[in-house]
Simulated scan of single mutants.
Amino acid sequence: MFYELRQYRMRPGQRDNWVKCMEEEIIPFQVSKGMVIMGSFVGEEDDGLYVWIRRFSSEEERKQLYQDVYESDYWKNEIAPKVPDMIDREAIEVKRIMATPRSAIQ
């Protein structure tokens, strides 16, 4: 099992719009496709920071879920066109991490 720690930089003034889009549209859609979203966060002192964590049981599962989500017509036609207005896609950072044996996030 591993996690994706995804860090995004929001465009100025777009924090509330991005959080609303994530919580009302993107996360529910991804969960409906089988994604496990562990958490979603904004920066306490950095208004331009958004972080979220997804969990995968294997690389094969990750590949399948990526295909199911990002290759879907709904993603391509409804969600993807909105994203560049709210976040800087070139500034996205994705780190693959694994929980330590005593981590509560197992």
Rank of each mutant, 00 (worst) to 15 (best):
K20H: 13
P28A: 07
Q30Y: 01
D68Q: 13
S32H: 09
P84H: 05
R54P: 01
K82M: 14
S32C: 06
W18E: 03
W18T: 09
S72W: 02
I53G: 04
E61A: 05
D47F: 00
Q30I: 01
S58P: 03
V19S: 08
K33G: 03
Y74M: 07
R55A: 14
I37T: 12
D47H: 05
D47Q: 12
F56C: 00
Q64K: 14
R62D: 02
K76T: 04
I27R: 11
N77Y: 00
Y70H: 13
G39R: 08
V69T: 13
G34C: 07
E25L: 10
Q64F: 02
M35C: 10
D73C: 01
E71V: 00
E44R: 15
K20T: 12
V51E: 07
S72A: 07
E25C: 10
P84Q: 02
Q67E: 11
W18Y: 13
Q30G: 04
D73K: 12
S40C: 13
Q64I: 07
K33I: 11
P28I: 01
Q67C: 07
E60L: 12
D47C: 06
D73S: 15
V83R: 14
D85M: 06
E60Q: 14
E60A: 15
A80L: 13
R55T: 01
A80M: 12
K82P: 02
M38T: 08
D46F: 00
Y50S: 07
I53C: 09
M38D: 15
D73H: 09
K76M: 11
F29C: 08
S32D: 10
D73F: 03
G43V: 04
L65E: 03
S40G: 01
Q30A: 03
K20N: 11
S40T: 10
R55D: 02
Y74F: 14
P28K: 09
K82D: 00
W18P: 05
D68V: 01
R54H: 06
Y66S: 10
W52K: 04
S72P: 09
F41Y: 15
V42G: 05
G39A: 09
F29G: 07
K76I: 10
K33D: 07
F29H: 09
E24V: 00
K76N: 09
G39V: 01
V19A: 08
K20R: 15
D85C: 01
K20C: 01
V51Y: 00
S72L: 06
P81I: 06
P84M: 02
W75C: 04
G48D: 11
F56Q: 04
C21H: 11
V19Q: 07
G34W: 08
E24I: 00
E45M: 11
G43E: 10
E59S: 11
D68G: 00
V31K: 15
